[in-house]
Design a protein around this nucleic acid. Structure first.
Length: 306
RNA sequence: GCCGAGGUAGCUCAGUGGUAGAGCGCGGCCCUGAAAAGGCCGGCGUGGGGGGUCCGAUUCCCUCCCUCGGCA
């Protein structure tokens, strides 16, 4: 029997995934599951360029705007949520189509993640305190002792990862490098097809600039103002635009500067996304240009599938 | 026109008689419970043009061009 198929439409921000996904979903008889760490949040519509209600009526979308921005979110929670959606969709006799730009979320689905069991928040907090007191090197040396394999892959300055590795060791008694080998993901039980959109860098950056302008025209300022009145979770507050506009609201710089920063940081983000997808050799690249439109993009992908 | 300051990386600028750096930008990469986050690496150059001194000039001298400020 043929394995059920699961599709991914990924790529850097502003390449037009959202629109192309609608046409592709129809051809594939699919439902769309967001693969985006920020679109899960309610009230962050303009800032994350969520698909419009109109688009969402054409094809069922999942995991968009389902969580309060005051709540933390992470890969593990995402995976649980997504797995459930996959089961539901397959039961309905349809295919799951993941759409979004969060590379880690995609990888976690395809390759799996290990489970930590109990919560380790307290341990993590303690490790951060140690970092403040003794510095990165101190923690790194500790990691070298308990998990040399992980240490060899992590740069001493990458405190976040050093701490995570130590945290995992402390709470499970096993090295993270060992646990990471125990993962199981989609690639074992499904036929996974990954497509990533791409275009010349210059054009991509131009489109990002245009998108940011559009976001402001749609009322980004009001949306962020409203958001900043509530207590945002750490995760939600990392959406590009929050930090940059904060400086403007505080009078540190003017609106043009805030806009410039949003554009710039989005371009840097797009570059990092490309690096992530490039290293995954399972990705099929779909080079697009401004002329072909979302329908053309969907058809191009469809042809590759036949 | 005269006086002064200056022309070095995409930008802002350092420095040196032995063919050049820094920050930002740009590019590449890493990443497995914050990922729109976090971290690492790379100088990417007709030193304004021409001439001279010198073994050797980006550095010293002459000249021309350009920019900025002041005086006219």
């Amino acid at each position: 029997m043929r394995k059920p198929r699961i599709f991914f439409l990924v790529g850097p921000t502003s390449t037009g995934k959202t629109e192309a996904a609608i046409y592709l979903a129809k051809k594939l008889n699919a439902e769309i599951i967001s693969c985006d760490s920020m679109q899960v949040y309610k009230g962050m519509d303009i800032i994350t360029s969520k698909p419009s209600i109109t688009l969402r009526k054409k094809v069922p979308h999942h995991l968009i705007g389902v969580l309060s921005p005051s709540k933390e979110y992470n890969v593990s929670r995402y995976r649980k949520d997504a797995l459930k959606k996959v089961q539901d969709i397959l039961k309905r006799g349809k295919s799951p189509l993941f759409v979004g730009g969060t590379g880690l979320y995609m990888t976690i689905l395809v390759d799996g993640i290990f489970s930590l069991g109990k919560k380790s928040g307290a341990i993590r907090k303690q490790l951060y305190k140690l970092k403040e007191a003794y510095g990165n090197r101190y923690l790194y040396k500790r990691l070298q002792k308990v998990d040399p394999e992980a240490a060899s892959k992590i740069h001493p300055n990458d405190a976040k990862r050093v701490i995570r590795a130590l945290e995992v060791f402390k709470s499970t008694g096993k090295p993270i490098s060992y646990l990471q080998k125990q993962r199981k993901g989609f690639s074992q039980e499904y036929g996974v097809k990954i497509f990533s959109l791409n275009m010349p860098r210059e054009e991509l950056y131009k489109r990002i600039g245009a998108r940011v302008e559009k976001m402001f025209a749609r009322g980004l300022l009001g949306e962020v103002k409203k958001l900043s009145k509530t207590k945002l979770s750490k995760t939600a507050s990392y959406a590009i635009g929050i930090r940059e506009l904060k400086g403007y609201f505080a009078g540190v710089y003017d609106l043009d500067e805030a806009k410039r920063r949003i554009k710039h940081n989005t371009c840097l983000y797009a570059k990092r996304q490309l690096t992530w997808f490039r290293k995954d050799k399972r990705v099929h690249w779909v080079n697009i240009n401004d002329r072909q439109g979302p329908k053309g993009v969907a058809e191009k992908i469809w042809k590759e599938l036949c």
